[in-house]
Amino acid sequence: MRRHWTIGFTLIMVIALIAAACAAPTAPAPAAQAPAAGESAPAGEQPLRIVHFVNGVLGDKSFFDSAQRGVQRVADEFGAQTKTIEAGIDPTGWEAALIDTAANEEFDIMIVGTFQMVEYLERLAPQYPDKKFFLYDAPVNYEGEACAPNKCANVYSILYKQNEGSYLAGVYAAAMTTQDIEGMNPESIIGSVGGQEIPVILDFMVGYEQGARDTNPDIQVIRQFAGSWNDPAKGKELAKAQYSQGADIVFQIAGGTGQGVFEAAAEDGRYAIGVDSDQALIIESANPEQAARILTSMMKNVDNSIYRGVKLHLEGTLPYGTAEALGIAEGGVGLARNKYYEAITPDEVKALVDEAERKILNGEIIVETAFQ
């Protein structure tokens, strides 16, 4: 009896092995892929975690707000978990706040902006080799003592060719300043107000002034600095002084200080050019009178650059350990052509600006820079 049971069990095992051998091979599980735009991470998979560290405050309607729009777009379209930390306007607290954020927040990518944060990030990033960092509007020194060799391989630096976009603003301002438009005078004088006299702001001004001179070699450009990014009263004072000297268009490159330039333009019946974002459209609901005085804005598309960077990160192609400069061709900078621009700008001026843009793109115009 035991022999018959053993033979039967053996026969069952042989049949099972033959069936398993004949079964179709199981396909390997597909590799995980980044969610497409508009999709969240698959169920059970940790979504991308992003911290946006602002060395200042939101609400400038310009630079930091543009970065925040990019972070929000990433949350909306990629399902990322995002958190924004505002460190305030006192520079003495920024490094401590950055260190505290890195130590206590859960993140895959930390996004930081401005040249003031370079040295802090160079010291911080090597301590977190398994984390990734974006630095926008400035590069870390990858070959410097703090970063070499390869200590900042987890940092992606985003630069902008603000000189290219500002060249278009200069062409535009020089062509508009003598037009027969209410608020313009026949004098060939335009102005600019910078937050601080630093290389990145000088790069705006160099491009602006070159575009203006190429359009009208006899033009006069008044250049001044407020010494602050959060002093609208100072911006207003400087703009009013330039208007009184014959300028009828002032390019503000001063963050929150630039709000005062818009106030002065509205009060004096003159005009302004905004910066970083399409500022007329941003402020029109709160202050339509000021919005109508912003002819255009030189947009530094921080939002687009952050979205682009995260998208490339998810695709596995973002070049960490390097700095990229984004210009007109890459959508990094450009001139706002909104309803105010369309309504007030004569066709011949629009054509002049469009031609200048084409010449930059095809290399006929090489825009000067403050960076050597």
Score class of each variant (00 low, 15 high):
Met1Ala: 13
Gly8Asp: 00
Met13Cys: 13
Ala20Gly: 14
Ala23Tyr: 13
Pro28Tyr: 07
Ala29Cys: 00
Pro30Gly: 05
Gln33Ala: 14
Ala36Ser: 13
Gly38Leu: 04
Pro47Ile: 12
Leu48Tyr: 12
Gly56Val: 07
Gly56Glu: 06
Val57Gln: 13
Phe63Gly: 07
Asp65Gln: 07
Asp76Trp: 00
Glu77Pro: 06
Ala80Asp: 07
Ala80Asn: 10
Asp90Cys: 09
Thr92Leu: 12
Leu98Ala: 12
Ile99Phe: 07
Thr101Asp: 01
Ala102Arg: 00
Ala102Tyr: 10
Asn104Thr: 13
Asn104Val: 02
Ile111Gln: 08
Gly113Arg: 00
Gly113Cys: 03
Glu122Cys: 11
Glu122Ser: 13
Ala125Asp: 13
Gln127Val: 08
Gln127Lys: 15
Lys131Thr: 04
Leu135Ile: 11
Ala138Thr: 03
Pro139His: 02
Gly144Ile: 09
Cys147Phe: 10
Ala148Asp: 11
Asn154Arg: 10
Glu164Gln: 15
Gly165His: 10
Tyr172Ala: 03
Thr177His: 01
Asp180Ile: 02
Ile181Tyr: 03
Pro186Glu: 07
Ser192Gly: 13
Gly194Asn: 09
Gln196Arg: 13
Pro199Asp: 06
Ile201Asp: 06
Leu202Ile: 13
Asp203Ile: 10
Met205Gly: 08
Gly207Arg: 03
Gly207Thr: 06
Gly207Ala: 05
Gln210Gly: 07
Arg213Phe: 09
Val221Trp: 00
Gln224Ala: 14
Phe225Leu: 03
Ala226Asp: 04
Glu237Pro: 01
Gln242Glu: 12
Tyr243Trp: 01
Gly246Pro: 02
Gly246His: 02
Val250Asp: 06
Phe251Met: 08
Phe251Pro: 11
Phe251Thr: 10
Ala254Tyr: 05
Gly255Arg: 11
Gly255His: 07
Thr257Arg: 07
Val261Pro: 02
Glu267Met: 01
Tyr271Arg: 00
Gly274Pro: 08
Asp276Gln: 05
Ile282Ser: 09
Glu284Trp: 05
Asn287Arg: 12
Gln290Trp: 07
Gln290Cys: 01
Arg293Pro: 01
Ser297Trp: 06
Met298Lys: 02
Asn301Met: 07
Asn301Glu: 05
Ile306Val: 13
Leu314Gly: 15
Glu315Trp: 09
Gly316His: 12
Thr322Glu: 15
Ala325Pro: 01
Ala325Phe: 06
Ile328Arg: 07
Glu330Gly: 12
Glu330Pro: 12
Glu330His: 10
Gly331Gln: 10
Val333Gly: 09
Lys339Tyr: 02
Thr345Tyr: 00
Pro346Lys: 03
Asp347Gln: 15
Lys350Trp: 02
Lys350Glu: 08
Leu352Val: 05
Glu355Ile: 01
Arg358Lys: 15
Asn362Trp: 08
Ile366Ser: 12
Glu368Ile: 00
Thr369Gln: 05
